[in-house]
Every structure is written in structure tokens, then in C-alpha cells.
Amino acid sequence: MKRIVSILLVVVLGYFVYTSLYVDGFDMAVSDNRQTSISDAYITKSVTSENESVTYMESTDLENGSANIVTAIVTDYRSFDTLGEVTVLFLASIGVSMVLAGFTKKYQFKMKTNRILKTGARLVVGLALVLGVYMFTHGHLSPGGGFPGGSIIGASILMMYLSEENFRARMASFKWMESLAGTVYVLIGIIGLFVATYFLENFLPTGTVGALVSAGIIPIVYILIGLKVGSEVSGIIDQFLTEEVAS
């Protein structure tokens, strides 16, 4: 009975959300629709400057040099939100390590690993690490970025934990990486405040759209996020795969 009621509630809620979004003329709620004008400004990179269009590998010195529009919004136009989301993951990782504090011995799975699994895992882990690093260093050019790149690094660490019985990652170095990446992210923001005018302002030259070294602070920020997410996810995995030492 409970289930039927909850399904009904979800359906009713869904109906209301759908009608409020997709009835005829919902986008006529206001005479000048901000959604188009704001999105257009993000796409043509003309928030602070008049700019007709952006051409790959040709346009230079735009207000935002990222070829990937999602990255442009996430790490430049709304970079402050991203700093907040990074903090959310940071808190989650602290919370896990506080609740599971004292769990030091690695958890032993019932199933034993074998040579084929170990060798295969080592091959894949190397490739996955490279893919993760590639993803967050090219976040301003291709799909992906710091969060998926960092998660791939975390996944490869998980693979090592699952395939090798005695593998333990060096958590101390992950802590250093996590802490430094976060601090430098905030520092970049504060440098923007003092060197330029605003917190988290892109104070480096943005270069040519599409070049590897371009977009000012965006690739730096994404590399920091990638390292931070990678070390936090690895830390959480390490906590979950350990158990209390029986005394």
C-alpha cells in the first residue's frame, strides 16, 4: 500500500512538473526571454565584450578561451559554484573518514584473486590513469574535465584494491594532494581579487580557442579539481575497504 501511494505521489508530482515546463507558451512567461540571451552570450563569449562568433583555432584573446562550452560555464562564468561543489565532496570525504575512523585493516574478500586478474588489472589501471589525467588536462578542449577525470583515477585505484590482496594506496600523499589542490584553487581566486579586480577572475591571457595552452586559468583550475577529486574518491574507497582490527 505504501508503495502504491508513493508511486501515485511521484506520478502526480511528475505531472505538475511536466505541465509547468511543457505547456504551450511556457517560455512566453516573460517578454524578453533571458534563457536565449544568456546562453547566446555564453556561446559567443560576449558577456563583457561584443563578439559575433567564435571560430575554432582562429579566435584569440576572448573573454573566455575554452573550446568546451560546458567547461567555460563550469570553471569560468560560474566558477564560484564549482568551488562550492568541490567543497561538498571535500566535506563528504571528511565525514566518511571521521565516521569510519579507526578502521585500519584492509578488508579481505571471500573470493581469492588470481594471476590473470592481477595482470589484466595492472594493464588496465595504467591506461585508466593516463585516460584520467588526459581528461582533466584537456577539460577545456574536449568533453570531460576535472570531475570525470578525477573519478576515473579513483576507479583505477578501486581496481587495484579489488585485484591485489595486499594493495594499500599511500593515503598520506593523497591527503597532501587533496589539501594543496584545494588551497591553490582558493589562492588562485584570491590572486584574481588582488591582481585583477574580482575573485576567481581569469587573469591570465586566454590565447587561441582550441590550443592546448589556452583559456588562462581554466586548465589550471581543472587540473587542480582533477587531482582533488581523484585523491578524495581514492580516500573514500580506502575507508570503505578497510575494517576494524579485531581486538
Binding site: 589539501s179 589542490a181 584545494g182 582558493v186 581579487l193 588582488f194
Partner: peptide
């Protein structure tokens, strides 16, 4: 510089730093 953003940025930066 009395920027209110520092009320958020400084505690956040110190929090990240306090891990090491």
C-alpha cells in the same frame, strides 16, 4: 580590501590547508 568574498574564501582556504 573589505571584500565580503574573503568571509567565504579565507575559511575555505584554511580548511583545505588544515588537512596537512
Amino acid at each position: 580590501m573589505s571584500q565580503p568574498i574573503l568571509l567565504i574564501a579565507i575559511p575555505l582556504g584554511l580548511a583545505f590547508l588544515s588537512i596537512i
